[in-house]
Nucleic acid binder design. Sequence first.
DNA 1: CCGTGTCAAGAGCAGTGCTCTCGAATGTGA
DNA 2: TCACATTCGAGAGCACTGCTCTTGACACGG
Lengths: 232, 232
Amino acid sequence: MATRTAASIRARLRAEMTDEIKAVARRHLAEDGANLSLRAVARDLGMVSSALYRYFASRDDLLTALIIDAYNALGEAVEKAEGAVDRGDLAGRWMATCHAVRTWALVNPAEYALIYGSPVPGYRAPEDTIEPAGRPTVVLGSILADGVASGALRDGHAERLPKAVRAELKNVREAAFPAVPEPLLLRGMTAWAALFGAVSFELFGRYQNVLEDVAPFFDHQMRQMATYVGLT
Amino acid sequence: MATRTAASIRARLRAEMTDEIKAVARRHLAEDGANLSLRAVARDLGMVSSALYRYFASRDDLLTALIIDAYNALGEAVEKAEGAVDRGDLAGRWMATCHAVRTWALVNPAEYALIYGSPVPGYRAPEDTIEPAGRPTVVLGSILADGVASGALRDGHAERLPKAVRAELKNVREAAFPAVPEPLLLRGMTAWAALFGAVSFELFGRYQNVLEDVAPFFDHQMRQMATYVGLT
DNA sequence: CCGTGTCAAGAGCAGTGCTCTCGAATGTGA
DNA sequence: TCACATTCGAGAGCACTGCTCTTGACACGG
């Protein structure tokens, strides 16, 4: 009992310290970009760099923790926004998802770049990241699945696909979206690429000197993609 | 005359040295990713790190040179592939462009990441990069313009756009693609985002454990986007 | 009171970008 | 031909980085 309490106290302190390190690291990330300096983080925390290694085995470990947090933050934002829309309003759910991705990315550009930018060289994504990384796609897939179930997406996408494409899509479907027929899944994945392509373009400066106000442009793009998918 | 020759000899040697530095840097980039070490490059060249500063004022300068080269290499690959297709075959030209982007990216993943990944923190893209950076979009735009001129893309995209979207597109159109009407331009830009979104997804590992053979999948995606734009 | 586990501090290593100075070429003008 | 100027590479050095290892302080449970 006593040992449990003491142990849990220690664990709590440790968790608080870990969170504080991550918070400071996130701040540095937002200012200095991806080249995060452990020593600078330690300085901000009033301690010495070697002390950080009590909490994170390496710089990559700290980055991994930040990446997982970022994936979960984005996933949470998306799920919350999408969940606030009436279940029957498929197009509204789709648009809410797209806008949630964009606004989260605009608010947290460094973290977006961390997870959707070029992967860091030697870095290999650990297992823990793949589940949180999939949360936005799960949301998009559930919208399609609900549309199929309700009959709103019944027809219109019975097009014939090349055999090789069908085979690929069959794997994806069976692994993650069993309710979504292949042609619809393909269109959904294209819209998915367009969504993150557009957000990345905006965030990585590809619209510089081209677009003034991206918001309405993005909104209409996503709306068109929603009808492209079949959610009129 | 003599001074011209001597000066040009020096200039030639200097250019050769510059090219060699860039070549070695590119090799390092391909292996170690974006964290390029000037000292390692210098070691490979059998000289000392400070000597590199005779040719590039800073590491950022070297990276900028590599970025410009990458933009031009991609632009050249795209223009060459698209130029090899019969001018009247609009859909063929579109597909050639898309595939050229993808194959170039697959052959040069590090350089693709350099130009289409997350921008490095303190780095600010200089003027020299914006022209080569636009070459692929110019190719895509010219396909649409040719389609409009030949009448193949005459109608079907006379849809009404929100005022704000029209205003944005008007700027883009007047600055770069005067022959392309706004609704078509919007669809083209969405397809553009889908193209680079799909390539980035593939290169940055977003298809890991999801797709086996991306080539036919990508091909069909782009084919659908071609019809989405109106090039059936 | 004494062991045990946890923590931060400090020194140190190898590596980094970058600056400055110095010697050695090399070509130029008188 | 000789002195001058320019260009280049080498070396030392500064401040910084990630990371390791050792040391000393502290708190807790037996």
